[in-house]
Simulated assay, not measured.
Amino acid sequence: MSVFIEKSTVLADTPFAAAPRFAVAFARTAEEILETQQLRYRIFAGELGAEIDGGEHGADRDQYDPWCEHLTVRDTDSGRIVACTRLLTDAMAPNAGGFYSSGEFDLAMVDSLPGRVMEIGRTCVDRDYRSGAVIAVLWQGIAAYITQHGYDYLFGCASIGLEDGGAQAHAILQQIKGRYMAPDYHRVRPYYPLPAADGRTAEKVRMPPLLKAYLSLGAKACGEAYWDREFNCADVFMLLNVSDLNPRYARHFLDRAPSVEATAGHA
Rank of each mutant, 00 (worst) to 15 (best):
P94Y: 09
P94G: 06
N95L: 09
G97P: 01
G97C: 00
G98W: 14
G98H: 14
Y100L: 10
Y100C: 09
S102G: 14
G103L: 07
F105W: 02
F105P: 10
D106Y: 01
V110L: 12
S112I: 01
S112L: 08
L113Y: 13
L113W: 13
P114D: 07
R116V: 04
V117N: 13
M118P: 07
M118K: 14
E119P: 03
E119D: 03
I120H: 09
I120S: 08
I120K: 11
R122S: 05
R122N: 10
T123A: 12
T123E: 01
T123K: 02
C124N: 14
V125H: 06
V125S: 11
R127L: 06
S131L: 10
S131T: 15
G132H: 02
G132P: 02
A133Q: 15
V134A: 06
V137N: 11
V137M: 12
L138N: 12
W139N: 10
Q140L: 10
Q140K: 14
G141Q: 11
I142W: 01
I142D: 01
A144C: 08
A144F: 04
Y145E: 13
Y145F: 09
H149M: 01
G150Q: 08
D152W: 06
D152C: 06
F155V: 09
G156L: 03
C157G: 12
C157V: 07
C157L: 05
S159Y: 06
I160M: 09
I160N: 09
G161V: 02
G161N: 12
G165H: 11
A167K: 15
A167W: 13
A169C: 03
H170K: 01
A171E: 06
Q174Y: 00
Q174N: 02
I176P: 07
K177N: 09
R179M: 00
R179F: 00
A182N: 14
A182M: 07
P183A: 04
P183C: 03
D184K: 09
D184A: 10
D184M: 01
H186G: 08
P190H: 04
Y191R: 15
Y192G: 09
L194G: 02
L194Q: 05
P195C: 06
P195V: 05
P195K: 15
D198P: 06
D198A: 08
G199A: 03
G199R: 11
R200P: 00
R200E: 03
R200A: 06
T201N: 11
A202S: 15
A202K: 02
V205A: 04
M207W: 08
P209C: 03
L210P: 00
K212S: 14
Y214C: 07
Y214M: 09
L215E: 06
G218I: 01
G218V: 02
G218H: 03
A219P: 14
A219R: 10
K220P: 05
K220A: 04
C222G: 00
